[in-house]
C-alpha cells in the first residue's frame, strides 16, 4: 500500500497520539472525588483504560477520516479501488495487539479487585455478619449475644450461606471491622442499623479512616447501595446477604443512591453518608444512644420490627406508607439535599 506514510511521520504521529492519550488519561476529570481507599484503585484502572482507549480512538477515527477524505471518489472517476483482499501480517498484528491489551487489562483488573477486598466478602470476622444471617431476630439484642458465640459456630453459619460483595482488603484480613452497620433497603428508603449501639438511622454515619463493614440486605425488592465517591456498589438482595467493607478517607457528606430499579419512586430513594472525624463520630454515637434510651422500650418489645415500625420508632410523627416515604425523600432531596454540597 503506497499510501502508508513515511516512517518519520508515523513516528511523529505515534508520539503525538501517545502524549495526547497520556494527557487525556490523567486529565479527563470524569469521576467524582475519591472518598474511600478503594476509589483511587478503581480510578487508576479507569485512567489506564481511558489512556489506551483514547489512543485507539484517535488512531481508528483518524484512519476513518483520512480515508474518507483521501480516498473519496474524484469527479468523473468511475473506476474501482485497489483490489486488496487482505494482508496476513497486518491482520495478525491487529489481532495480537488488542489481545495483549485485554489480557493486560484483565490481569490488572484482578489485582485491583483483590486489593479492593473482592476475594474476601463474608470473611468470618465481622460479628455483625451473623445478624445479617438471622434478620428475623431482634437486631438490638442478638448482636452482642452472637458475638460471644465461638468462631466455630460462625464458620458454620458461613458454610450455609454465600456472602457477596467486598470484604476486607488483603492487609486488613485479620482485623475485626471497627464499625459494623446492618443496611436494609426497602421501598423507598435505606435503614442503617448499628448493632453495637442499637442506633437506627435513615442516614449512614461513619468515622473517617476506620474500617467499616456494611451488611446489606433488602426487605421487599432488589435495591442497590451505591456511594459514587466510594466507587462501591452492592445490590441489596432479599434473601442473599452481601457485604461492603471500606475505609472512608475523606470527611464530608456524600450521596447514597439506590441504583437498582425498585419501583415508581426508585429515583427518590436517596439519602446520604456522613463521614465524620473520629471525635465527631463519637459525639454522634453518644447523642444518638442517649436519645435512643428513651425509645428502647419500644424497640425492644418489637421482636421483628417492620420497616414502617423502624421509621415510626425514629420519627413517630412522619408518614410511613411507601409512597409517603418516597415523597418525603423527595421533598428532602429537593429542599434538603440540594442545599447540601455534593462535594465534587
Amino acid at each position: 500500500m503506497k499510501q502508508i506514510p513515511a516512517p518519520f511521520w508515523t513516528l511523529v504521529l505515534g508520539i503525538a497520539v501517545t502524549l495526547i492519550s497520556l494527557w487525556v488519561g490523567q486529565n479527563h476529570n470524569l469521576l467524582p472525588i475519591q472518598a474511600s481507599e478503594q476509589a483511587p484503585l478503581v480510578d487508576d484502572l479507569f485512567d489506564v483504560m481511558v489512556t489506551i482507549g483514547t489512543a485507539l480512538f484517535i488512531v481508528v477515527q483518524g484512519a476513518i477520516i483520512y480515508s474518507m477524505v483521501r480516498f473519496r471518489q474524484r469527479k468523473g472517476d468511475e473506476t474501482d479501488g485497489l483490489p486488496i483482499e487482505g494482508n496476513l501480517p497486518l491482520e495478525a498484528f491487529w489481532t495480537a495487539i488488542p489481545s495483549i491489551i485485554v489480557v493486560g487489562l484483565g490481569l490488572y483488573s484482578v489485582v485491583v479487585f483483590q486489593e479492593m477486598g473482592g476475594f474476601s466478602p463474608g470473611g468470618h470476622h465481622g460479628h455483625g455478619t451473623m445478624v445479617a444471617m438471622a434478620p428475623q431476630q431482634s437486631v438490638i439484642d442478638v448482636a452482642p449475644l452472637l458475638a460471644q458465640v465461638g468462631e466455630g459456630e460462625s464458620a458454620d453459619v458461613y458454610s450455609r450461606t454465600q456472602v457477596y460483595g467486598f470484604g476486607a482488603s488483603p492487609l486488613m484480613q485479620l482485623n475485626q471491622p471497627d464499625v459494623t452497620v446492618n443496611v436494609t433497603g426497602m421501598q423507598y428508603a435505606w435503614i442503617f442499623n448499628y448493632p453495637d449501639t442499637g442506633i437506627i438511622d435513615g442516614e449512614l454515619h461513619v468515622p473517617v479512616g476506620k474500617d467499616v463493614q456494611l451488611l446489606i440486605e433488602a426487605k421487599d425488592v432488589i435495591h442497590s447501595f451505591w456511594v459514587p465517591q466510594f466507587r462501591l456498589k452492592q445490590d441489596a438482595l432479599p434473601g442473599e446477604p452481601a457485604e461492603l467493607r471500606f475505609v472512608a478517607t475523606r470527611e464530608g457528606t456524600y450521596p447514597v443512591v439506590c441504583a437498582e430499579l425498585c419501583g415508581a419512586y426508585h429515583g427518590g430513594m436517596r439519602t446520604q453518608v456522613i463521614v465524620h472525624s473520629p471525635e465527631e463520630y463519637a459525639d454522634w454515637v453518644a447523642s444518638r444512644v442517649a436519645e435512643a434510651s428513651s425509645t428502647t422500650a419500644v424497640a425492644q418489645t418489637l421482636a421483628s420490627p417492620t420497616s414502617a415500625e423502624y421509621l415510626a420508632a425514629i420519627a413517630p410523627d412522619l408518614a410511613t406508607s411507601p409512597v409517603q416515604i418516597a415523597q418525603m425523600n423527595h421533598a428532602q432531596m429537593d429542599h434538603g439535599l440540594s442545599g447540601v454540597s455534593m462535594d465534587r
Binding site: Q3, A63, S67, R72, R74, G81, N87, E91, W94, P98
Partner: peptide, 16 residues
C-alpha cells in the same frame, strides 16, 4: 476489533 479494523482497511485505498 478485528471487524472494525477490517472495515477501516476496506475504506483505505478505495474510491469512496
Amino acid at each position: 476489533g478485528v471487524k472494525i479494523f477490517s472495515w477501516v482497511a476496506t475504506l483505505w485505498g478505495g474510491k469512496i
